[in-house]
């Protein structure tokens, strides 16, 4: 059920500041696409334009087109709330709702739409937690608060929460940057499994991670601090890391700057 994304001419602003400039790319369904680049290059901002979260930030606005299977997310009459149901998101820091139990956290998105029987809800929660490789660790304490879990578990709980509503696309904004190596590995394995069902876009600071998990990699850069970020190139991950077509990409990957 995953969908393709076609971005054309996308520019995003914070107030009068242009954060990213004229970005176009295509993202295939059932792939993992990684965004890499130095801090401030706009890769997170770009990610947030893909489910209309950018405009939540005060002063945030967007020009250009994002097509989700031929439908423009920024077209007239599009409801951003529906967009976010189709395009789920996992954040940098794990953010389970602190006042809800593990079960309620996973069910939170489902409950928004109401018409669920208690038993159905339980099935979906179990399926989602299994999908996030968390079921075995939490099945005995579903009614305990989610904030009692470890950081890595919390992040997988957030993934379970995101996939419970069956989105078509899953956006991940540096999902492992707050986690230890073992939890990171667990999430990376999970990403490999999830791409069978979802189109995954992941922002990462860690180039090894991009190389490990992604099929395609996009490199973003900015000319100088205060300048808008730009897409330098997007290509198969293997190519980006072995033989990129732009010099700047090679410089960045080989650690000559950034």
């Amino acid at each position: 059920m995953s969908k393709r994304i076609d971005v054309s001419g996308l520019t995003a602003y914070y107030g009068s500041h242009k954060a990213i400039d004229d970005i176009s790319m295509n993202i295939e369904p059932r792939t993992v696409t990684a965004f890499i680049g130095p801090s401030g290059c706009g890769k997170s901002t770009f990610l947030r334009t893909l489910n209309r979260m950018h405009e939540v930030t005060p002063g945030g606005r967007v020009e250009g087109k994002v097509l989700l299977d031929d439908e423009n997310l920024y077209g007239a009459g599009i409801d951003p709330v529906s967009v976010r149901r189709e395009v789920g998101m996992v954040f940098q820091r794990p953010n389970p709702f602190p006042t809800m139990s593990i079960f309620d956290n996973v069910a939170a998105g489902l409950k928004l739409n109401g018409n669920f029987k208690k038993s159905e809800l339980g099935d979906v929660v179990e399926k989602s937690l299994k999908g996030a490789n968390l079921w075995n660790e939490v099945k005995d304490r579903l009614n305990k608060p989610g904030s009692g879990l470890s950081g890595g578990q919390q992040q997988r709980l957030c993934i379970a929460r995101a996939i419970a509503v069956e989105p078509k696309v899953l956006l991940m904004d540096e999902p492992c940057s707050a986690l230890d190596p073992i939890s990171t590995l667990a999430i990376e394995d999970l990403i490999g499994e999830l791409k069978e069902r979802f189109t995954i876009v992941i922002v990462t600071h860690n180039m090894q991670q991009a190389a490990r998990v992604s099929d395609r990699t996009a490199f973003f850069n900015l000319a100088a601090v205060g300048q808008p970020g730009k897409l330098i190139e997007i290509d198969d991950t293997e190519r980006i890391f072995s033989n990129p077509s732009v010099q700047a990409t090679e410089d960045y990957i080989s650690g000559r700057f950034g």
Binding site: N51, M53, V56, V81, S82, V83, R84, R85, G88, M89, F91, R93, N95, P96, F97, P98, T99, M100, A108, G109, L112, C158, R161, A162, V165
Partner: peptide, 23 residues
């Protein structure tokens, strides 16, 4: 981040308030 979590699940503004702010 709690409000964004609710938003990213496709919550309306009132649902964000109910899920993240009021509790």
């Amino acid at each position: 981040m709690h409000e964004e979590a609710a938003l990213a699940l496709g919550a309306t503004r009132w649902e964000v308030v109910r899920m993240a702010v009021l509790p």
